[in-house]
Design a protein around this nucleic acid. Sequence first.
DNA 1: GTCTATAGCAAGATAGAC
DNA 2: GTCTATCTTGCTATAGAC
Lengths: 220, 220
Amino acid sequence: MTEPDRGQQTRELIVDTALRLFRERGYDETTMRAVAKEAGVSVGNAYYYYASKENLVQEFYLRLQVEHEAAAQPVLERETDFGARLRGVLHAWLDVAGAYHAFAAQFFKIAAEPTSPLSPFSAESSPSRDAAIALMAQVVEGSTARADPELRADLPDLLWLMTLGIVLYWVHDRSPEQANTRLLIDRAVPLVDRLVGLSRLRIMRSVTRDVIALARLLRG
Amino acid sequence: MTEPDRGQQTRELIVDTALRLFRERGYDETTMRAVAKEAGVSVGNAYYYYASKENLVQEFYLRLQVEHEAAAQPVLERETDFGARLRGVLHAWLDVAGAYHAFAAQFFKIAAEPTSPLSPFSAESSPSRDAAIALMAQVVEGSTARADPELRADLPDLLWLMTLGIVLYWVHDRSPEQANTRLLIDRAVPLVDRLVGLSRLRIMRSVTRDVIALARLLRG
DNA sequence: GTCTATAGCAAGATAGAC
DNA sequence: GTCTATCTTGCTATAGAC
């Protein structure tokens, strides 16, 4: 008569507690002992479900991504202009991530480690990475953007890289409400929009081809 | 009759030992106890000279930067073409950094933490950051590159950001001898060269101005 | 100011019993 | 699945020698 999903319940109890403590105290200040105690389980039990403290952060990424996709949907349904779609999707990310800024910056280092499964470039991250790129593909596909046709195929990858750059800026952004990051988006998007438009011009052909080759090299 | 530089010698003994162990075993696997033991000093003494394990890494950065500047000099004396200078300086970085690739990647995370003094954006890093940007200024100044005059002033900053991107790729590069990073440089440099040239054209004026505004926002 | 020895804390992680 | 006990390691503290 044991509950079939008792394990799952314990698992969620642990991660919910951990994410709450992360938000309240920050990553470094949240000890595994504190997580276990607050969740009412033993330290050993917490490690039974999460092999390391970092693994708890992975759960955070997954939840953030789901929230972002939901927040981006209204924009994608409303807008058809490429720049407006891109800007809206990026601002949507800030909307959902803003609440976590203080502690997201603190464990950003974990994602930066090349050997970590939490790296955005790791094999383990490919589900969330693919989803993020797919979102950028939606931005492009549903838009009225007129780009070089070959470039258009690589644009989602490039826009994902741009997003990483913006996130990098965001974690360093100390301005109130991360207003500078919004400013960055509002300046970068029209630039990207213009460059995409220029990609069809004949003078830009060689540049466009170089960019495409570069995008493919970066994808590996 | 005490040696006047006894402290300095001990200091160097400790950091030399640490960097050797980092290279042999990696960062995480090198304990402060092991560094002290190998260097023949006490743990307390090691901490007397280096307040933390991370501070030992900072020494590594400084040495790397000095080596890079030395390796870049012949290129800067030899070449006048902008692309050749940029390519040469970037390859020179790979030449000096290559030996440390395995363990540099391992403690890259330390530099990624926004709050860390080892972050390339931190106030504490400003000496080495300024030096790196100054090196890029040398690349631009001594070259025959014809860029939009206003852009030219911001080019060193932008090239430094480009370098960071290349380093990011490099730490993730698993190809033998990091050959893919060299490929990346060889493809990115002509692209940059072309874009810089195009910046003088009238059609590119608004794009160029956007880029300049962006560069200034990023500098803060 | 330079250095040793040692004891000890905090916290991530593990072992093995139940 | 869950627990308690234990290990490891970055780091600190103290007390003292030269």
